[in-house]
Structure formats: C-alpha cells, structure tokens
Design a protein around this nucleic acid. Structure first.
Lengths: 207, 207
DNA sequence: GTCTATATCGAGATAGAC
DNA sequence: GTCTATCTCGATATAGAC
C-alpha cells in the first residue's frame, strides 16, 4: 500500500513529493485525458521514477482521483461567494469575472474537469449529485428571491448558472477553436470576452 | 492497404459495411475518446471481427479521422443557413434552436467534437483554421451589417457565436452535470433551455 | 472478404537490491 | 525511499487458412 494512502500525516518531504506528482499529473491528465496519460509521462514530468510514483500512490486511478478532488475545491469557490445582500447584478458580474479569471489562470483544471464530465463523470458523480447540487440549490433560492423582489428580471436560475458556466469555461476548454476562428491572434480573447459576457447577462437580468 | 483507402468507388455492400463501422465507431469514440476506445469495442458494436474492421480501414486513426470528417459536415450546416435578408433576431433564434436540436439529437457527435477540441484538435485543426474560420468571418460580416443598420444592438460578433456554441453544446457535452444539478429529473432540460437561451440572446440583441 | 491464430509492443504494476 | 529489472496483460496490427 502506498504511503500516502495509509495515513493522513505526512512528513514535509513526503508532502512535497506528492505535490510535485499531483502538479505533474494535472499537466499530463489535462492534455491527454485519463486513458491517454501514462504513469511514465507523469514520472518524466515530475522528474521521478515510475516505481517512485507508485510508492506514493496505489495506482494511476488514485492519482487521478486525488487531482480531481483537489481541483473541485477551488472550482466551486466562486459560487460559494455569491451573497444575497449585495447588489444582484454586481454579484452576478463578479461571479462571471471570477469564473472567467479561473478559465484564464487555470485552463488545465478546466480541461481536466471537462474531460471528466464528458466521460460521464466516473470519479466525481457523487460530488455532482451531492455537494454541487446542494450548493446550486442554495444559490438558486437567492436568484429566485431577487426575482420575486423585482430586483432582477424573471429568469430560470438553473439555466442562468449553466449559461455562465458554459460561456466562461468555453474560453479555456475550446481555446484552440477560439484562437483558430479569431483572425487577430495578438489580442487576448479573454480581454474582450469579459465585457461581452457581463453585458449579455446584465442586460438579461435588468428588470 | 485497406480497401476503403485505395479507391473511392465502393460496392453497395462495402459502402454498407463501412457505414456500420463508422456508426459503431461514433458510439465508442464519443463514449471513451480516441485513446480509451479499442478496435475490439468497435468490432463488437458493429458485430464484425477485429481483422475485418482493419480490412476496411488502415488503422484505428483512419477510422477516427473519417468519423470526424463526416461529423464536421453536418456540424457546420446550421451556421451556413444564417441569411442576411431575414429578420436578424429571428435568424439568430432559429440558429440557436437548430444548434440546440443538434445537441439533443446528436449528442455523440457533440461529445466527440468536444473531445477532439479539448485534446488540441489534432485531427481537425486545419478545418478550424480554414473552413470554419472563413465561414465565421462571412457570418460576422452579416452581424456587423445588422449592427451598423441599427437592426440589432452593437455586440462583438465573434463572442456572440462563441456564446451560442458554448451554451447550446453544453447541454449535450455536460449533460451528466446538468441532470445531476436539476432536482426534477422527469423534466427534459432541453425543453426549458430553448426559451431561456432565445430570451437571453434576443434581449441582448434588441437595439 | 472473413476468419483464427499470433507476433509485437506499450504500459501498469511488482520484486528485490541498495 | 528509490532504484533497475521484470512480470503480465491488453491492444494494435498482421499472417495465413478458408
């Protein structure tokens, strides 16, 4: 049994090693998917030997699961931050900006997540049906309250979230298509996407 | 060299066989990605033997490339249909509806395409930079003309297309997440997504 | 054209020395 | 804890009979 699986307490050096492995694994998995990635690739990127990787993790799947678990934490953070007491349109715009910043700054995480969902979420389905569903339900209520109070227009809150997720993550997941279609490659798509999306969503939400 | 690669002319039975193989391949590739799929899976689904598959196609990659080429044709059809002479908002709404219908009726194609783009478009990059880019450039001009004539609001046409692609395809590619988040699984997400998206985009585009 | 049998190879995982 | 060497298996692709 690999060291990291048996106990929670790790020495500093062990913690470092697993972090290096997870960082390399994120690189590889996000580029080639789970099945397209090999332990050898991860080992090379981490500058460790293949058996050494398997000393820290039971098997390839364990690495994948750990990477996904880490990513989910940060992935849901912006949604948590939506606050009922602030101005509704400001809150939504802030959320869009945060999601777009994450797509720009963490494209590997976005692609890895997209890959996992595309394959039917074999490793994160429980989280989708549990933590994510509950969190969304909570924020849906906020949107509904805003609508009821006439602070924003009447919209389907679920589809609002789906649209924000889809449009922001698109710039990370489909970046090769975005850059292929845009003629002027000197301009960063993210710079113009922000204003566009904020305009679109606030126009719809303005009562 | 496999039969189907040497000449263009195929007998009726050969054409049938290759169609059966491509149909099975679409099933398998869209579920497991290129690397996660095996020729055996395709053979089983097509009810043919593995060597028989390789009689019709040189190798696994040739099957993948052929499936992608077929799918791209149908994939771009709705974009072609956008007509400058009709009412702008009607045309955009029609486009959204067609894209959403395709996501509903051809989820395998949508997922396969998403997978290919996520991996960096190894097999369709030339088409993205050629046919797709040209087609988009042409339709971007139509949007710009509509804006200039005051028929629709001023929007960035590229980001408009990106957003339509992202939001519609989301319901096919991320369906497992969509269904996990929605409490009531009896209702079809597509039924409510159509009105939502049409409202969102026409609100933004109304001058 | 289609099959069975098989060569070959890449990759996950382990054994055991140090 | 980390390494080299190796086992093992699954998958691509081919050989050759029918």
């Amino acid at each position: 049994m690999a060291r990291s699986q048996t106990t929670k307490k790790l020495t500093r050096i062990q913690r470092q090693r697993t972090d290096i492995i997870l960082e390399a694994a994120l690189d590889v998995f996000s580029d080639f998917g789970f099945r397209g990635s090999t332990i050898d690739m991860i080992a090379k990127r981490a500058k460790l030997s293949k058996p050494n990787i398997l000393y820290y993790f039971d098997n390839k799947e364990a690495i994948h699961v750990t990477v996904l678990a880490k990513l989910l934490e940060t992935w849901l953070a912006p949604l948590h931050a939506i606050n009922e007491d602030n101005d509704p349109i400001d809150e939504i715009c802030k959320y869009i900006e945060q999601k777009l910043n994450m797509a720009r700054d963490f494209p590997r995480e976005s692609k890895l997540f997209a890959n996992e969902i595309l394959q039917g979420a074999p490793h994160v389905l429980p989280e989708l049906q549990g933590a994510l569903k509950d969190l969304v339900a909570q924020k849906v209520k906020i949107i509904e309250a805003w609508s009821k109070d006439g602070k924003i227009a009447q919209v389907d809150p679920h589809h609002l979230f789906f649209s924000i997720w889809a449009t922001t993550q698109h710039y990370a997941d489909f970046d090769i298509q975005v850059r292929s279609v845009l003629d002027d490659n000197t301009k960063d798509p993210f710079d113009t996407a922000g204003p566009f999306l904020k305009t679109m969503f606030s126009t719809m939400l303005t009562p």
